[in-house]
Amino acid sequence: MPLPENKPIIVVENLSARFGSNIVFEGVSFQVNKGEILVVVGESGCGKSTLLKIMIGLQKPFSGKVLFRGTDIISAGEDEINNYRQNIGVLFQSSALFSSMRLSENIALPLQEYTDLDSAMINMIIKMKLGMVNLAGYENHYPAELSGGMKKRAGIARAMALDPTVLFFDELSAGLDPVTAVELDDLIIKTNEALGTTMVIVTHELESICKIAHRVVMLDKTAKGIIAEGDPQELKEKSTDPRVRSFFLRQLPDADYRDGAYGK
């Protein structure tokens, strides 16, 4: 996919995360460019979800900065954080739809809270968002009445309710069948192209990564930081780093890596 212009919207600077004395990652720096789909990849336990939680303001890092349009959201006050949250949308791994609410109520919630629109306009926006994710007509359904893939799409509709600048996805297609996963990938690409929404996706679904990512940032558990960054196809075909190759080619790492030599 063609890479959007190199205009950073989020800049992650020297970010470190720890759980007690356990270092998850340190010195992580990268930027998310306007309109791009950036995929954060890496083996389980490398800190992908921790990085995502820090970027969406749910967790404080040990040190470092996350700049959104120049404002550091780590040291920001409550008002600035709230403003930031109105500019982002998040799709959680479990979709996190409110089970006691219909889909229409799930999507209406941020619109009622942050806008002064009347209920007729809110209803039209709900119909539009559900149409965007191919769920037109499902506004009166409860989340429990939907399949896993439909829940994900409904989660995307809710995340897009306020037309956010950046969308974050945690394990986009985890637990979904291949056909549904491909449908979601297509939806992501279409939404990105049509609306120009910047997207940060945490996943380790190789096929998705190669299909949807403009750029990939790869974290490594042993190195406790970024070991590769760039176009997924190029990384897959040209990287000489055995850790990157083993990930993209779905091979077991070589003996040196298993012994931890690369982390030393």
Partner: peptide, 12 residues
């Protein structure tokens, strides 16, 4: 991406 049909579709 705005499907006008979706706007007038009756809920299932």
């Amino acid at each position: 991406v705005i499907h006008e049909q979706a706007l007038i579709k009756r809920p299932f």
